[in-house]
């Protein structure tokens, strides 16, 4: 038997808290809160040189175990076939607003100049892992393809299934041309494991983990994100209202 005071207290607390939840769910409130993302991005860009580097660590700082997150093994038959043939027939497509669309094999990408960096991977959940990444700077791929007028964003289309469709992410040209932004094909000196995004994944070191698209199949250069997925620029942005700018 619950005492009357306890019952009234519980109802009062629940009423207060469900009131809070109603405020939280209100579109106006969400709109106001969302405006802070633009403020944060502009403020960070204001105090950060566009080429300012993320901290690079030494081999002694490596995480003993580099945690993988999200998809550990894409489910599609296409991906399974690529994996079985060790990505011999896999091609990275670079298209959209470019002068010369590309279709590159893993060997061709491996023959391009590579950058190796030991950096910290920060998940939006709060954990961090330090790993050594090797890959081709995205800038070199974009220069080879040649951006056309109006190009503003780079979209990464991935092989892993998420919900109804495939994973996708996007960054702007400031991050795309940053010296540490690479399409990585190796982790800790080994070819990129499947759990970490084989054969190649994006590293965009000044943003959180969900921006670092794994299993990248196609790099599309676009003028606007409106036609990509739900229009907010990425899988988590569209499905769960995560920030597109994930520098914080």
């Amino acid at each position: 038997m619950i005492s009357r005071r306890k019952a009234i207290g519980a109802i009062g607390a629940a009423g207060l808290l469900s009131g809070c939840d109603r405020i939280i769910a209100s579109p106006t409130v969400r709109g106001v809160l969302r405006s802070a993302e633009g403020l944060t991005m502009r403020a960070q860009r204001l105090v950060t040189d566009r080429t300012a580097l993320a901290r690079e660590f030494g081999p002694v700082d490596l995480s003993p175990v580099f945690r993988s997150n999200g998809t550990a093994m894409p489910r599609s038959a296409d991906y399974a076939a690529h994996l079985a043939s060790r990505f011999a027939d896999w091609r990275l497509v670079v298209d959209g607003l470019v002068a010369r669309p590309l279709s590159l094999s893993l060997a061709q990408i491996g023959a391009m100049p590579a950058r190796t960096q030991i950096t910290r991977h920060d998940c939006v959940e709060g954990w961090s892992a330090i790993g050594q990444w090797t890959g081709v700077p995205l800038r070199l791929l974009l220069d080879r393809a040649g951006l056309r007028n109006g190009a503003r964003y780079i979209v990464f289309h991935c092989a892993d299934d998420f919900g109804a469709g495939k994973y996708y992410e996007s960054i702007d040209l400031i991050d795309a041309f940053h010296p540490q932004t690479i399409m990585a094909w190796a982790l800790n000196g080994q070819m990129l494991p499947v759990a970490n995004g084989a054969p190649i994944r994006l590293r965009v070191e000044r943003q959180l983990g969900y921006k670092h698209a794994k299993y990248v199949m196609r790099i599309e250069v676009v003028a606007s994100l409106a036609a990509i997925g739900g229009g907010k620029g990425g899988y988590w942005e569209d499905s769960n209202d995560y920030e597109w700018y994930a520098g914080i």
Partner: peptide
């Protein structure tokens, strides 16, 4: 200090607190 963007802007934050974690 937990912001990867601010780590690039103000790397001294990492030294001040001994790392992001």
């Amino acid at each position: 200090t937990m912001s990867p963007g601010m780590n690039a802007a103000w790397p001294w934050l990492l030294d001040l607190f001994g790392g992001r974690q």
